[in-house]
Amino acid sequence: MTDPTSGAALRGAVDLSALRNRPTAAGPGDTVAPSSAASVASLVMDATDETFAQVLELSRTVPVVVDLWAEWCGPCKQLSPILEKVVTELGGRLVLAKVDVDANPQLSQAFRAQSIPMVVALVGGQPVPLFTGAVPEQQVREVFAQLLQLAAQNGVTGTVAVDGAAAPEAPAEPPLPPLHAEAFEAIEAGDYPRAIAAYERALAENPRDAEARAGLGQVRLLDRVQGLDLQAARAAAAAAPQDVSAQFAVADLDVAGGHIDDAFDRLLDLFGQLAAADRGPVRERLLELFGLVGDTDPRVVRARSRLASLLF
């Protein structure tokens, strides 16, 4: 499991270790970045089971967006051009690696691609779930902006040049709003309560600040899981199935580790067991985690449906 107490939560339970040391000889038609990551043939490349180790290495220099798709998938054909357009416009700050799940079963299994299109990112070799399903261009831009912030927090701030093209000028980074900057500084210092307070003040000033809301959800999770031991938390939860605090601890650790369905199922089971008067905190925690994972994520959609059935 990725360490959820790092400066930024690289969320994901994807195990890519078996793909790190594969032979990297490219097959016909494959376009994969060289291991030096100084330049690429294109900002949009195809990746395979055999060449994915190079993609992992590239992600240590620049965030790599992985688009898991298939030829028969209609929503994939809607989403892929949007991803390509936005990545290209970012001028080398992101790279897009396209994975045909039918032709690359090991990658499909590693990423647990139960539904496509599925989009994840790699930052420093670590997976970061982004979204599943076709989403509008504006949402893609917002997610990629958050991805670049997350990458910067983890020291992945490089750019790549396209072979044969002049190196693009790095676009000027707009200055962070003061409260966002305060939150980032606090996160880097490991002072999560101060980061939470900064994001809460930002939301008080502008309730529609989506980046502050997303940052607040992530840093609250970081604060809650800091210092928790997974085995001890699971033992405590097993010993007290209706202890709300014990179940919350395991659910938070599961979300931090990318086990989203496990977390939701645990809290929904707990919700169903409690008396109506005691359900409020569980519902609030579920809604908070729904917002953290993303309202369009199919796992959230399923969990919301089950929550509604338990309520009514």
Rank of each mutant, 00 (worst) to 15 (best):
177 P>H: 06
177 P>I: 05
177 P>E: 06
178 P>R: 03
178 P>F: 00
178 P>S: 07
179 L>E: 02
179 L>D: 01
180 H>Q: 11
180 H>V: 09
180 H>N: 10
181 A>Y: 04
181 A>T: 06
182 E>P: 01
182 E>T: 08
183 A>V: 06
184 F>M: 14
184 F>D: 15
184 F>G: 14
185 E>P: 05
185 E>C: 07
185 E>K: 13
186 A>Q: 00
187 I>M: 15
188 E>P: 08
188 E>T: 13
188 E>Q: 13
188 E>L: 14
191 D>N: 10
191 D>T: 02
191 D>M: 03
192 Y>I: 07
192 Y>E: 10
192 Y>L: 10
193 P>I: 04
193 P>M: 03
194 R>W: 04
194 R>M: 10
194 R>Y: 08
195 A>L: 01
195 A>F: 00
196 I>L: 08
196 I>S: 04
198 A>P: 10
199 Y>E: 03
201 R>D: 03
204 A>E: 12
205 E>I: 04
206 N>R: 15
206 N>D: 15
208 R>K: 14
208 R>M: 14
209 D>H: 02
209 D>W: 00
210 A>G: 09
210 A>Y: 08
210 A>R: 12
211 E>D: 15
211 E>R: 15
212 A>H: 07
213 R>Y: 02
214 A>V: 10
214 A>H: 08
215 G>W: 00
215 G>I: 01
216 L>E: 03
217 G>T: 11
217 G>R: 12
218 Q>A: 14
219 V>M: 00
219 V>T: 01
220 R>I: 09
221 L>A: 05
222 L>E: 14
222 L>A: 15
222 L>N: 14
222 L>S: 14
223 D>H: 06
225 V>G: 12
225 V>E: 09
226 Q>M: 09
227 G>W: 00
227 G>I: 00
228 L>H: 07
230 L>V: 13
230 L>A: 12
231 Q>T: 15
231 Q>V: 15
232 A>C: 10
232 A>T: 14
232 A>W: 08
233 A>L: 02
234 R>M: 03
234 R>T: 06
235 A>H: 00
236 A>V: 07
236 A>G: 01
237 A>H: 07
237 A>I: 07
238 A>T: 10
238 A>V: 07
238 A>C: 03
239 A>Q: 12
239 A>P: 02
240 A>F: 01
241 P>D: 05
241 P>E: 09
241 P>W: 10
242 Q>T: 15
242 Q>K: 14
243 D>P: 01
244 V>Q: 04
245 S>L: 10
246 A>S: 07
247 Q>K: 05
248 F>K: 05
